[in-house]
């Protein structure tokens, strides 16, 4: 199982994305991060800290649990049940430019659920998508605005993102022949 991104690479990548965000949005006015639980949350927090270092402005950051918006919630009658966790967005998203952060972009279904969930909180001016890894195989018309690394994969591959805050280590692994859960 090869490591395709190590800690240093992840750190450089997030720094690069932070600069791209500042460049493309011409500053950080009205920006806010929303991380998708679980691993989108530390990504959003790290980017928020990087933007503060770059621009000396704090960018509000929240976390979003999308479990109850999933389109497969009622379809599989067997299998584990994801724990529902708290959504914490303690600022108004109305009129803001929201940067939605997740670790891996795959079928796009998680992002679809996140967009639905986010719209229930208000009417943002825009939503942009940030992902650490884009592994392809989209099943919905969704694309990311900021991509850490494009990784060509087959459906048998499993991309595992580990982050310090959740897993105790920063690395991205590409594993062969993992059956899709």
């Amino acid at each position: 199982m090869p490591v395709i991104m190590d800690a240093a690479r992840i750190s450089r990548t997030l720094t690069r994305i932070a600069h791209e965000i500042v460049e493309r949005n011409r500053g950080v006015d009205d920006l806010a991060f929303v991380g998708i639980r679980t691993r989108g949350v530390p990504i959003a927090q790290r980017l928020s800290a990087l933007l503060r270092d770059i621009t000396a402005h704090a960018v509000p950051t929240g976390s979003l649990d999308i479990t109850m918006y999933r389109d497969d919630l009622m379809r599989n009658t067997v299998g584990p049940q994801p724990l529902v966790r708290r959504t914490e967005i303690d600022f108004s998203i109305d009129g803001r430019r929201i940067l939605l952060a997740d670790d891996v972009l795959f079928t796009g279904r998680t992002i679809r659920a996140a967009l639905d969930a986010l719209i229930d909180f208000g009417r943002p001016r825009s939503i942009q998508l940030v992902v650490l890894v884009d592994r392809g195989h989209r099943e919905l018309p969704i694309k990311a605005d900021y991509v850490g690394k494009n990784v060509p994969t087959s459906l048998q591959h499993v991309v595992q993102v580990h982050l310090q805050e959740v897993d105790g280590v920063d690395e991205v692994r590409l594993e062969e022949n993992g059956a899709r859960p």
Binding site: M68, R70, L73, R75, N76, Q81, V84, P181
Partner: peptide, 14 residues
Amino acid sequence: MAVLYLLAGGVGAD
């Protein structure tokens, strides 16, 4: 809500 969800919903795989 928690009881209803845990009994009747939430059987999705990740």
